[in-house]
Nucleic acid binder design. Structure first.
Lengths: 202, 202
DNA sequence: ATCATTGTTGACCACTTGGACAAGAAACTA
DNA sequence: TAGTTTCTTGTCCAAGTGGTCAACAATGAT
């Protein structure tokens, strides 16, 4: 088996944190190693370069979030509740970030994706794959809502994309403003956008 | 008067283009100078550093866009038409970018803003100021629409922010996907989001 | 115990980076 | 014409960059 170590996990965690707090381009390999308490030699033992680490860190983060997402979007909950709970969850996360690290950081996927998409095809592809994952959660909730009649129409795929765009736009704006308060109404606006029967109730 | 030159304008233009196509962090002072065909010494004659150039370039770009924006959002046009025309204009711009440079570039303000907002307060402030400019255009159109009865409610400020979030989210997603086609329905979704009386007509 | 595997260390390198600078060139002014 | 201001040029530098490497250390297998 050889020597064991959690250096790889520490690198993934450090990269995720630094890139989210700053940006992909602003974070150097040295800085990642410093935060992970790992020598640069070890870095290159585990990863070819920063780009590969970023992709791995996106995947690790996605995997780590699965339990929470699966619970929130579980079919045990009424479809519109799933969305409301998801948005509330995001709002709480961003508020917590603001309190703990001083910044509303927005969405790590979109931050990174929009930064490097014209220059790093691998990261771009990975971001797109994970974005699709989120949209599928949205879509299934919307479809179920449409089937039970709490949302109009039968275009769940389209509406999921609209909603996701609004969601990401709001997150990015919150990041730039460094103010999470506008995210409180994410769920209410979502109902509006979806043409929900109980619109503006929440 | 001393020696005259358009090097400053060339630098502004080069910076705008490079940062938009790539990202703030990926663009070096050398690269900007190369594209602008200006020596580095001249760069530092006009600007203190890259950050200051970026701010100046945002401002120059905003000024240059004013005539078009003023016309689109002129009170001569019916309020909902203003929004429809604006979104159509953006769609055409992004399609043109895709054709001419190979990439859908999204919004220069949000791209830059979300990248540097935690590390460069001056750029962040400038981005916020210009964002506010766009939202004010939205708000005035929405308010006029509400007054003439084509949009429900009296919360123009709020709705302008919702719409802007959706708009920016869609732009960023188009950038990451490198596909402008989803921006075609910007206007239609906007009517939906605003609770417009003639929703989905366009 | 020895051995292959796997992870660690820190020195090392070529290259790029932002930025300073002094000398010169172009324009306008007196 | 001489002088002043503004812009240009090319060189130079210290610091930081991504990335390599060979020697070393821990682990489990035989």
């Amino acid at each position: 088996m050889g020597r064991v170590s959690d250096a790889k996990e520490r690198l993934l965690e450090a990269a995720k944190g630094l890139i989210w707090e700053q940006s992909y381009g602003a974070v150097t390999v040295d800085a990642i190693c410093r935060r992970a308490k790992v020598q640069k030699g070890s870095f290159y033992h585990f990863f070819d370069d920063k780009s590969e680490l970023a992709v791995a860190s996106l995947e690790a983060d996605w995997q780590a979030r699965q339990p929470v997402l699966a619970e929130i979007f579980s079919r045990n909950h009424p479809p519109l509740d799933r969305l409301q709970n998801f948005f509330e969850h995001v709002y709480q996360c961003q508020k917590k970030l603001q309190k703990e690290c001083g910044y509303v950081l927005g969405c790590p996927l979109f931050n990174l994706g929009s930064e490097v998409c014209t220059r790093d095809e691998k990261i771009r592809k990975k971001v797109l794959a994970l974005v699709k994952g989120y949209i599928r959660y949205f879509e299934s909730a919307i479809r179920d809502a449409q089937e039970e009649g709490s949302v109009a129409g039968d275009n769940a795929g389209l509406k999921a994309r609209w909603l996701f765009s609004y969601f990401e736009g709001a997150l990015t704006q919150a990041r730039i403003e460094n103010d999470a308060s506008s995210l409180r109404s994410l769920g209410a606006v979502a109902l509006h956008l979806l043409d929900a029967k109980l619109a503006m109730a929440a």
